[in-house]
Each structure stands twice: as C-alpha cells, then as structure tokens.
Amino acid sequence: MINFKYIAELVELAESSKKTIAEVVWGWESEESQCSSDVVWNKMHAGLKVMQDAVRQGLQEQEKSFSGLVGGDACRFTNADTFLGPVVAKAAAYALGVSEVNARMGKIVACPTAGSCGIVPGAILAVGEHLKCDDKVLVKALFTAAGIGAVISSNATVAGAVGGCQAECGSAAAMAAAAVTEMLGGTPKQSAHALALALKNLLGLVCDPVAGLVEVPCVKRNAFAAVHALLAAQMALAGIESVIPADEVIEAMYRIGLDLPRTLKETSEGGLAKTPTGERITEGING
C-alpha cells in the first residue's frame, strides 16, 4: 500500500524505493482509484494535451474576456523583444496565455484551481522545450505536481476563499517548482526544498480580485508565479535548502490563511477590489 500524508513521507517513499516522486504518485493514484496504471497515465496525458492546446490558443488569440479587462497580453509579451532568458520568457508567456484562455471561457485544466491554471503548464512546458523532451517527461511532471498539491490540499487548502491567493497561486507555484526540479534531474529532497522555497515566498498573498472576476490580478499573477517557481527550482538544484521544511511551510500557509480577514479571501471586499479603479470597474460590470 502506498500511503503518504506529508511531503516528508512522500520523499521518504521515493528515496527508499529509488523512484521519483512522479512514479510514487502515479502508483498511488492507480492503487487508490483501482484503475490500471495505463488508465491513470492516459487520463493525465489527456490533461496535458488540454494544457498544450490552451498554451497554443493563448499565444494566438487576442480576444478580450467578457469584462474587457484581460486578453491579448500573452501575444503582446511574446511579440516584444525580451532581455529575459528564453525559458523564463516562455514560462511567463505560456502562463499568461492559459490564464487568458480561462478568462475568455476557453478550455483549461484546473491546476489546482481555475484561477491558478496557468502556472504549472507555463513552467513545465517552458522547461520541457528547453530539455527538448517528449510528452512522457511532461506527464510525469504533472504527477509530481499533483502529489504535492494533494498533500497541500489535505493538510491545508488550495481554495482562495479559505486561504487567500497563497493557497491557490502559492500552491500552484510550489507544485510547479517541485515538478520542474524533478524534470531537471533533482532528487526528491531537492523537489521538497523547491516547493518549500516557492510557497514560503508567496506566504500571505491575499485574494482580492476586482469585481469578483478571475482576471485582475489573477491573469498576470499566473505569469509571476510561474517564473517564481523556476527560481525556486533553480535554487534547489543548486543545493540551496529551505531552512523551514516543506510540511511546516504548508502548515504555516494554512494558519496564515485562517488568520487573513475574510475581506481578503475571494469576497472582493478589500485590497485591489476596493481601490477607486477597482470599484469603478466593478460598477461598470455588475452595476
């Protein structure tokens, strides 16, 4: 029986069986769901294809969302000269693109939520191109990300309404950081450090979307969080460690989430939503 409740246990399981986190999580899902490992693999592969399509669509289409607040930035970003390295620039563009697809009612994979759906695909697809790897590596990366997300979700929360944006975009960045670390040959321990570093540095991030829509600040935030995940992975691969272990960071995130006032947890009653511009936009859309 494969069983883990904490990141430490997941790392231990992987190391003692000389497997990657992805392989452990894949086996775990197959046991839990009582589906063959092929069925589980194919379902994840189907999710990957939706992500790849969303990136493609996101980079091509410039149509605005219903509110008119977002749309077209992924194109703008891709067409501009950039001083960033190609992996970082692609991660940001892809994350923007997927989030814009989400905002204009296109098809995406919640990852872990719809609001944060650009972060994991942005990071892993950009790194995948850098490695020139096939879909197999990317599907595995999704299993790694899913395992991390499952631990966060069962010990804390991935819902903005419960924990603020640190729970959504913070968790997504943590998932992406661990996945990218493993893609680049990092050990399970390094993946754990990467996720701890990523989450730690988004602690306290509030959820204050303008007019209650998953648009401002969400779409651009996906790009920031995708790049943030790459930095966390790069640090972990360089041997930099998080002083606070991953499980304790997750617990801290949860406590901080509970401590946040409700005005900053998806109610649009505080923060950016209550700025003069935010209020003006709200009136225009819902008024």
């Binding site: 189907a46 989400n102 098809k107 994979v109 919640a110 872990p112 719809a114 899913a146 395992g147 499952a150």
Partner: peptide, 13 residues
C-alpha cells in the same frame, strides 16, 4: 486523488 488537483478539465473562468 491526483485528478482533484490536476483537474477538472473545464471551461473557465
């Protein structure tokens, strides 16, 4: 399960 985290496949937002 993993598909509660990477999923559902859905129409946004």
């Amino acid at each position: 399960g993993v598909f509660d985290i990477i999923g559902p496949v859905m129409i946004g937002p």
